[in-house]
Design a protein around this nucleic acid. Structure first.
Length: 109
DNA sequence: GTAATGACGGCTA
DNA sequence: ATAGCCGCCATTA
């Protein structure tokens, strides 16, 4: 795996790692922070490579606060389990108080 | 080399 | 306000 895309991926990982516990961010927020607001897909794709890294992908959800990527985790409710473990209330793959736990890198960072 | 997909988001009808 | 379509960048088939 050559670090060709590491530039883009690295940024995603960097932001994802900086996400505080009990907070969640959206792909679009990270993408926008990276300067690729229209490339939110890449952010999610980058998370694919985050598997096995120190990147809390479970803290990254879509703009609706829905755990769209929970299907990519090991278990069925592992992502939800992790979020609840951090204090994030999640019901039916839906983050409750999403705007409260929402962490915007462009503002907070 | 071309086509389709993907952990999304924004725009248009 | 709601629904549907298109676009982005990279990877894979």
């Amino acid at each position: 795996m050559q670090p060709e895309t590491l530039s883009f991926f690295d940024k995603v990982y960097d932001v994802a790692k900086q996400v505080p516990m009990g907070r969640v961010t959206s792909y679009g927020a990270i993408a926008k922070y990276l300067g690729a607001a229209k490339s939110a897909r890449m952010v999610g794709y980058a998370m694919n490579g985050s598997h096995g890294k120190d990147v809390p992908a479970h803290r990254v959800v879509n703009r609706k606060g829905l755990l769209t990527g929970k299907h990519h985790f090991e278990g069925t409710n592992l992502m939800q389990q992790l979020l609840e473990n951090e204090g994030v209330e999640v019901i039916e793959n839906q983050v409750q108080n999403f705007e409260k736990v929402f962490w915007d890198p462009s503002k907070e960072l």
